[in-house]
Write a protein that binds this DNA or RNA. Structure first.
Ligand SMILES: NC(=O)c1ccc[n+]([C@@H]2O[C@H](COP(=O)([O-])OP(=O)(O)OC[C@H]3O[C@@H](n4cnc5c(N)ncnc54)[C@H](O)[C@@H]3O)[C@@H](O)[C@H]2O)c1
Ligand SMILES: NC(=O)c1ccc[n+]([C@@H]2O[C@H](COP(=O)([O-])OP(=O)(O)OC[C@H]3O[C@@H](n4cnc5c(N)ncnc54)[C@H](O)[C@@H]3O)[C@@H](O)[C@H]2O)c1
Lengths: 208, 208
DNA sequence: ATAGTGCTGTTACTTTTTTCACAGTACCTG
DNA sequence: CAGGTACTGTGAAAAAAGTAACAGCACTAT
């Protein structure tokens, strides 16, 4: 099983290869990719071991083949289907952002309680009533959910999603959610992140 | 020096103590706080060691004193000043969210290029022209910046912020930014996070 | 009082993650 | 074709993060 951190970096490498490399660059050395990703060359090579792909000592890694190899690890056979719950400020921003990038992740449904939002297509994606979560998640076989509802309903929404078969959750509500063992949960609380940054920012200025 | 992860958890503990505990609960045991935070009691106690605060073996930790003790570690003497650059969908969502919570972090200025946004007060915070970044960051002694500009200008904006004295950056643009050693950088790329969640979601369903 | 209880603080250990360092390899050069 | 070069892949070492275990304490109950 590939680790957390490695998966994250693989995703970054692929993105760099696909978007930040000249069309006419056919291959790169570990230190070049590592520099773009701000990691050490050793780290990069170690990460790539998990994909099974081998570069050549004289040419480095074929950009195209490497990207394909990473895709082989990260992606399933068909794009993962994603639902987003809570089309507020944040929810809309995320959906419209994800629409912009073509991606192996498809946001196929969004949900809200607000009747001004439901039944319409917002930011390019159909918004359903919150009561239809189970129905649509099950029907569409949605495996990943993004939670951008107010924090007091986040746990309830989560429980329903998990029940309906979701196995991965990206949570933006600032509460630690409780999920069963088998469900992968990633929290993205802004406040925590900012407090962390502020702490180290302060330490950095204090040092001088 | 306290680690990355520990700081993050301390921030979470404090938040739990301040918002998720009954007014009449005066003290809690490590396992109670740990359960709320979804960490092991040992982890919690270990984290608290860094604050120097000691609980009692029979009463546990005083909610109030512990929160104060964490604050002593995380916060400086006065609230850190924060700037946000790029008042687009995401930027506005974040600013209005931060306004909502009273906090030791004060968003004191936002910046944009769009003349429909500059010069006005948006989501409760003054929005300045992007050309005044250096002036205002220096004058207000802003130490933390949140970057929500399009990714092609993110590096340029970052360089200017760093130059003006910012020492902590929370980056939402999906590019790995380059900053000097002394500046703390935290990236919050949605795509990477989602791909990671999707990967583990798939692994979790495949296992069965 | 005294034995018993159930917690904390901390040390020692385990696991995970990162870095180091170098043998092995493919090419280039003269 | 021998020697040199600059890379890769990977085992081994180091560092970081997390877990377990337990001595010692503060209290309670008898
Ligand atoms: N704005 C941010 O940048 C930001 C940052 C971090 C975290 N958050 C968190 O993300 C969440 C959303 O933030 P926001 O600024 O978009 O708030 P918002 O109020 O604009 O959006 C919340 C949306 O969720 C919908 N909703 C409410 N209950 C629902 C339910 N049971 N099912 C489905 N939808 C429901 C509401 O109708 C609304 O559209 C909040 O928990 C907030 O704390 C926001
Ligand atoms: N929308 C999301 O949820 C989301 C998620 C992840 C990452 N991002 C990234 O965050 C950034 C912003 O996303 P968004 O959806 O808010 O886009 P947006 O286009 O709505 O907002 C960008 C804002 O930045 C301003 N801007 C442009 N150049 C600037 C400059 N040099 N200085 C100051 N301001 C400038 C623009 O005027 C605009 O208001 C993008 O990089 C996007 O990729 C967005």
């Amino acid at each position: 099983m590939i680790s957390d951190k490695t998966v994250e970096r693989l995703s970054l490498y692929r993105w760099l290869l696909e978007t930040k490399v000249d069309k006419d660059t056919v291959s790169l050395f570990s230190h070049q990719i590592a520099a773009m990703a701000c990691v050490s060359p050793a780290q990069l090579r170690r990460d790539l071991m998990t994909t099974g792909y081998s570069g050549s000592s004289t040419r480095g890694y074929s950009v195209k083949e490497l990207a394909g190899s990473i895709a082989g690890v990260l992606d399933g056979n068909e794009p993962a289907k994603v639902a987003l719950i809570g089309m507020g400020n944040l929810g809309r921003a995320i959906v419209s952002f994800l629409r912009g990038r073509r991606s192996r992740l498809k946001v196929v449904a969004t949900f809200d309680t607000d009747s001004r939002k439901t039944g319409r297509v917002i930011s390019g994606c159909r918004c359903y009533g919150q009561n239809r979560i189970e129905e649509i998640v099950t029907r569409e076989q949605i495996s990943v959910a993004v939670i951008t509802v107010p924090s007091d309903v986040a746990q309830k929404v989560t429980d329903r999603l998990v029940n309906a078969g979701v196995t991965g959750i990206l949570n933006y509500a600032p509460v630690p959610l409780r999920v069963p063992e088998r469900v992968y949960l990633e929290n993205r609380d802004v406040t925590t992140a900012l407090e962390k940054v502020a702490y180290f920012a302060r330490k950095s200025t204090e040092k001088e």
